[in-house]
């Protein structure tokens, strides 16, 4: 199938059609994604909800360029992932995608500031992007930047991770269970921040979660089950359409 029809649909920053992913474990084939179709508009905040094994993490990994698709079409900000090799996907991760993980994944040896600067260094950028100070203010970590992760609370670490993910002005912020390790209060702070970033800065966010309450912070909720996106109209969460 040609990607031309998808490429013409410019408003969509993520376009996925009939995405399949098969893992080989020894002689056993595991079909993690079985024909996923998904489109995300620029500046949209989408939550992907589903139980364990539904394929949402696999989708996260493919959209983030951490794993190649087996078949199907995947366009990220107009770039076709099928045409990318490992090196191209590595470069894509430097600038196009910002990751926020459940376990924060900050380097323990570096301060919060250096964790952010490292992401810039890897991407080859030296100057802080315009407006980034406002993002730091919004995240409320300006006075915690010289601390190492072990001196920060879980919520602070996750906010530093968000700053790190945004420092290279990625087209998409991919968040994998960003509140999975946080208590309710900190979860709400992080989710509020993600929503604020989406509304104020227009940051496109795709958040993977199994928590319906977290998903409710998004503009739109997509439900996955057995490696597929469940069709619209099959249900709703907190009054938002699936």
């Amino acid at each position: 199938m040609s990607s031309a029809p998808l490429a013409e649909a410019v408003p969509y920053i993520i376009q996925v059609r009939n995405l399949r992913k098969v893992y080989h474990t020894g002689d056993v084939e595991v079909e993690a994604l079985r024909g996923v179709d998904l489109s995300v508009k620029r500046s949209e905040f989408v939550a992907v909800v589903g139980p364990s094994g539904s394929g949402k993490s696999t989708l996260f990994h493919i959209l983030g360029g951490l794993a190649p698709p087996t078949s199907g079409e995947v366009l990220i900000d107009g770039v076709d992932l099928r045409k990318m090799d490992e090196s191209d996907r590595t470069e894509m991760r430097q600038r196009k995608v910002g990751f926020v993980f459940q376990k924060y994944n900050l380097l323990p040896t570096l301060t919060a500031r250096d964790n952010i600067l490292l992401a810039q260094s890897i991407a080859g950028t030296k100057t802080r992007p315009p407006g980034f100070d406002n993002v730091l203010n919004l995240l409320g970590i300006t006075n915690r930047l010289d601390h190492k992760p072990r001196a920060l609370s879980g919520g602070e670490q996750q906010r530093v991770a968000i700053a790190r993910a945004l420092v290279n002005q990625p087209a998409i912020l991919l968040a994998d269970e960003p509140t999975g390790n946080l208590d309710t209060a900190n979860s709400n702070v992080v989710l509020d921040l993600l929503r604020d970033l989406n509304k104020r800065v227009g940051q496109t966010i795709l958040m993977i979660t199994h928590n319906p309450e977290a998903a409710a912070f998004a503009d739109r909720i997509v439900f996955m089950r057995d490696g597929k996106i469940v069709q619209k109209g099959e249900g709703e969460i907190h009054g938002k359409p699936l």
Binding site: G64, L66, T90, M92, F101, N105, L118
Partner: peptide, 16 residues
């Protein structure tokens, strides 16, 4: 191992 994974997720190339 995890830290190396973080670097790779941030876009660090193998030679780095």
């Amino acid at each position: 191992t995890r830290e190396i994974g973080i670097l790779k997720a941030l876009g660090a190339k193998p030679w780095m």
